[in-house]
């Protein structure tokens, strides 16, 4: 047989005649096996890191959520749903859920709308002098470390000497207690979060806007479609995949917010999450339960609840998106 055949065919021919090295590979083939092995070999290092530091702990968490587990004791006892029933009877847990909901419901829409508005504005001004600089300035907060800039914002929110109250004073508005007020502490965190994250979503929207087909916009121009109608009927549908992505990303990010709450509400105001648990969100409570009160099983149960919530929310968003998002 002098005919040149691809390796796979070669292997099949060999196995059929029984002359190959690996006759049992007749249904698969040596080439595909090699491809597969090389492929897995290449992703193995990062897969290992993921398994050890990500999936491993996650699976372990699911395990101890149903046990009474103590970091100092070698024994752990199965308690079934006991941890969850303890949670249900903890007012602070419900408070944290409420706080998280309040936080997400306000931060996600505000960030998304603000990012879209900024992106539209930056797109209009991109060819003007300083257009590029404005883009950089909007994105800049996102690249700063949360803990460092949170400390700056603690000063801004300082009721006596802070910039925030100085601005309110200048505008002849009543001054606020900001982080020390039960009512304003969580909104203060929201303001910080919007400031820190809006740049990222703005850049995502800008990328989306830059893919708008130029001739379609010109066709709309010739159709006499302008202003709000152009935005509502042409631009918004065409960037809907980006909008969906931004909303999902923002939801997941805000539901997991931890660092800024910890930094902004800790420090001079005592333990983080205050005053009076007004800024205690799910993720903060998870952290405190585990590493402050050392109730690892309880905090694992909470993590599972948060995980279920994020998953459900994302699925709901996906369902809505399937009806509203237009993919080109």
């Amino acid at each position: 047989m002098n005919r040149r055949v691809p390796l796979s065919e070669d292997a099949r021919v060999n196995s059929a005649t029984g002359g190959g090295l690996l006759p049992w590979l007749s249904w698969w083939n040596a080439y595909a096996l090699r491809e597969t092995l090389v492929g897995y070999g290449l992703i193995l290092p990062s897969l290992l890191v993921f398994l050890v530091f990500y999936y491993g702990p996650a699976i372990f968490l699911m395990y101890i959520a149903f046990f009474h587990w103590n970091i100092f004791a070698s024994q752990s006892t199965f308690v079934g749903l006991h941890n969850f029933s303890v949670l249900i009877h903890q007012p602070v847990f419900w408070q944290s859920l409420l706080n998280t909901g309040y936080y997400v419901v306000l931060v996600v829409p505000v960030t998304t709308l603000l990012a879209l508005a900024l992106a539209l504005l930056l797109r209009e001004t991109r060819n003007l002098r300083g257009g590029g600089l404005s883009q950089a300035l909007v994105f800049l907060p996102h690249v700063t470390p949360v803990v460092a800039t949170s400390i700056i914002w603690v000063w801004i929110f300082d009721p006596t000497f802070g910039l925030a109250n100085a601005v309110l004073h200048f505008l002849h508005l009543p001054q606020l207690g900001w982080l020390s007020s039960v009512h304003w502490a969580l909104p203060s965190v929201m303001i910080y979060t919007v400031w820190h994250s809006v740049g990222l979503y703005t850049v995502l929207f800008l990328a989306g806007l830059s893919t708008l087909p130029k001739q379609v916009l010109e066709a709309a121009q010739m159709d006499g479609v302008r202003g709000w109608m152009l935005f509502r009927r042409i631009i918004l549908p065409l960037i809907s995949p980006i909008t969906f992505f931004v909303i999902v990303l923002a939801t997941i990010n805000t539901m997991q917010t931890f660092s800024q709450i910890y930094t902004l509400t800790g420090g001079p105001h005592g333990g983080a999450g205050g005053p009076a648990f007004s800024t205690t969100t799910d993720s903060l409570l998870i952290y405190q339960t585990a590493f402050l009160y050392l109730h690892f099983s309880l905090s694992s149960a909470m993590s599972l609840v948060l995980f279920a919530l994020i998953l459900t929310l994302t699925l709901v968003q996906k369902l809505i998106a399937d009806r509203m998002v237009f993919y080109r």
């Binding site: 379609v216 010109e218 121009q221 010739m222 479609v225």
Partner: peptide, 19 residues
């Protein structure tokens, strides 16, 4: 302005509204 000229234009890539 373009929309007030009452012109019908056919673009190279058609530029139909895809959605």
């Amino acid at each position: 302005p373009a929309h007030a000229r009452n012109i019908g234009m056919v673009f190279q890539n058609y530029a139909l509204y895809p959605h």
